[in-house]
Design a protein around this nucleic acid. Structure first.
Length: 579
DNA sequence: GCCGTTTTCGGCCCGACTGTTTTCAGTCG
């Protein structure tokens, strides 16, 4: 039997079905149902295919009998009959056309039905020949905007996303600039950047002001803004020098809370919130909360009041993903913050590929308020000219201890980031590993093994009694590389069983474990680390990104092992607790 | 297509903007 489809493959099939049904003119709610189900499957921490086979997939929200049938067909036969039928009806180019800005399913369908256009090339030719303007509902502007979109490369690939730190840096520049404008009374970054997501496609900036015209003018004049539209009472749209779209929204101060709540999203959170509100006769929008009973619209200056008026506890932005934060029994977790961290269990020095010495890293960590730091340079087979031989590691560990003895106020651990070899073994002898204070094991080679092999490889490493933690468990690089084919659920189970900690690696393009798996791991009883993986003193500060992931995973400080003081952390290490 | 203090049918969030059109459908976030 072929390997089961991954969650993202199952989700992609339902998304495609949604696209095709939309073209086919299905009612919007059916299309939404497909997309909601796709999101549920994509975000599921465990493989969904086995649930389909076991007949329990309808226990997932938004998946009923009909979708179960379709998923079963997909697993059994490799395809969904309904999708086959619709694919025969609409060439793939028509689906591509719906992704052009301004062209949705309805308009793309008419171009296909009435002009026979079924590709981006055909669309360009028709627009250049001015054949599109003859269709009712289309005109010269439509042709121009189609050509403009095609020239901008739209449709070919989805718009580039930038990792969160880049987006926040740009966003914070905009905020600082707007704060210099006297008409701005309050300004915040909203949208996905505020929720701390992995990567960002555009920025939302919300402003409280009684003089929108001045704010729009100030926005257009910002150095970081390359271009912007004319704008109006409610705001403006622009693009930054580095190519991020920016949505600027302005309201009077008395409804700033409504605006901030609305534009912070996520969309799924807001839709769910509004559905709940409607059942109580309340209608939520960025302008306020309309009460059917009185006809009155309630406006609020703060988000706390918005949630309060709906009878809900305040929800931190990082939780607003419709992952249970609106459920009746929701109790807001006391989310971890960077200040809670007392140790960092993963960093590098000049001994391998780092840029600073042991002492420099230790002093910088102490200045950041840390009480302990593990020096974990790469191991014997790292390659890139940065490998550390067994003898070199012995001398290195000695130096770590000397420096540690010399420095007050910080405990240094002699450690290593040890390669997990393709067979699951490690590249130092156990005798040497036993001399160390701390070992974090990571996969750095042979990424392309199949799922069963890769899972077996990592589980074997977790079963090693001298492996205290697993580093960047999936190896993903945000926007560049998917994680390796590993069953993270099985890794979580193995970590729980063996008492091995799992890392949230804070490198901004890793954030690995991700939020969904980190939450699952803690639920399974695994201890989580938030580590910097710093390669120089400055990047010790990267824990900001790992902490954001932990917050998105709903984690309080108690779920993160390195929020403990050293005396309490030390005995939790597997090498200590298992002996 | 899903779901149920509206339970097995009839609902299913909200508003701004755009272009083309004399009142709005489609698209977008």
């Amino acid at each position: 039997m072929p390997a089961d489809l991954s969650n993202s493959e199952l989700a992609a099939a339902l998304d495609e079905l949604g696209d095709l049904n939309e073209l086919d003119g299905a009612i919007v709610h059916r299309v939404v149902a497909y997309r909601t189900a796709a999101k549920t499957i994509r975000e599921s921490p465990r493989p969904v295919a086995p649930l389909v086979r076991a007949g329990t997939v309808t226990e997932l929200p938004g998946i009923g009998r009909t979708l179960e049938e379709k998923l079963t067909a997909l697993l059994d036969t490799g395809t969904i009959p309904a999708a086959e039928k619709l694919r025969a009806k609409f060439p793939p180019g028509v689906v591509t056309m719906t992704r052009l800005p301004g062209l949705g399913p309805k308009r793309a369908r008419r171009l296909y039905d009435e002009l026979g256009i079924d590709s981006l090339e055909g669309l360009r030719e028709a627009a250049q020949a001015e054949r599109i303007r003859d269709l009712s509902g289309f005109g010269p502007k439509a042709e121009a905007s189609i050509l403009e979109a095609l020239d901008a490369g739209a449709g070919a690939a989805p718009r580039a996303r930038v990792v969160l730190p880049t987006a926040l840096e740009t966003g914070e520049q905009i905020l600082r600039g707007l704060l210099d404008e006297p008409a701005v009374e309050r300004v915040e970054l909203a949208g996905s950047a505020r929720r701390g997501v992995d990567d960002v496609k555009d920025l939302d900036v919300v402003v409280a002001s009684r003089d929108p015209a001045s704010v729009v003018a100030a926005f257009a004049a910002l150095e970081v803004i390359a271009s912007s539209d004319r704008g109006g009472e409610s705001g403006s749209r622009g693009r930054t020098q580095n190519g991020l779209d920016v949505d600027l929204r302005i309201v009077p101060p008395d409804r700033f809370g409504n605006l901030l709540q609305h534009f912070s999203g996520s969309k799924a959170h807001n839709v769910h919130l509004r559905e709940m509100a409607v059942r109580r006769g309340l209608h939520v929008s960025e302008h306020g909360i309309l009460d059917d009973a009185t006809g009155e619209t309630h406006r609020f200056a703060t988000e706390e009041e918005v949630y309060g008026h709906l009878g809900l506890p305040y929800v931190e932005p990082e939780l607003r993903e419709d992952r249970g934060e609106l459920d009746p029994g929701f109790e807001p977790p006391d989310l971890v913050s960077v200040a809670d961290l007392r140790g960092d269990l993963h960093c590098h020095t000049v001994a391998s590929d780092g840029k600073n010495t042991i002492e420099e890293m230790a002093v910088a960590a102490r200045e950041r308020g840390l009480e302990y730091l593990a020096i974990t340079d790469h191991s014997a087979s790292h390659g890139f000219g940065n490998d550390v031989s067994a003898d070199a590691l012995r001398r290195h560990a000695e130096t770590v201890r000397e420096v540690g003895a010399r420095l007050d106020g910080i405990t240094l651990l002699a450690g290593s980031e040890v390669n997990v070899m393709p067979d699951g073994g490690l590249d130092y002898d156990d005798d040497l590993l036993a001399e160390l204070d701390w070992v974090i094991a990571s996969v750095h080679t042979a990424f392309r093994m199949d799922g069963a092999q890769m899972t077996g490889r990592i589980v074997r490493a977790l079963e090693h009694p001298l492996v205290d933690a697993l580093g960047h468990p999936t190896g993903r690089l945000i926007g560049r590389r998917a994680g390796y084919a590993v069953d993270v659920g099985a890794v979580i189970d193995a970590a729980a069983r063996t008492g091995t900690m799992l890392e949230i690696n804070s490198a901004p393009d890793r954030r690995d474990l991700d939020d969904i798996h980190a939450r699952e791991a803690v639920a399974a009883g695994v201890r989580i680390l938030v580590d910097s993986d710093a390669h120089r003193t400055a990047t010790l500060a990267n824990t900001r990104w790992g902490i954001l992931t932990a917050r998105r995973a709903w984690l309080p400080a108690a779920a993160i092992a390195n929020t403990l003081p050293w005396a309490q952390f030390a005995p939790l290490r597997k090498r200590v607790s298992a002996s």
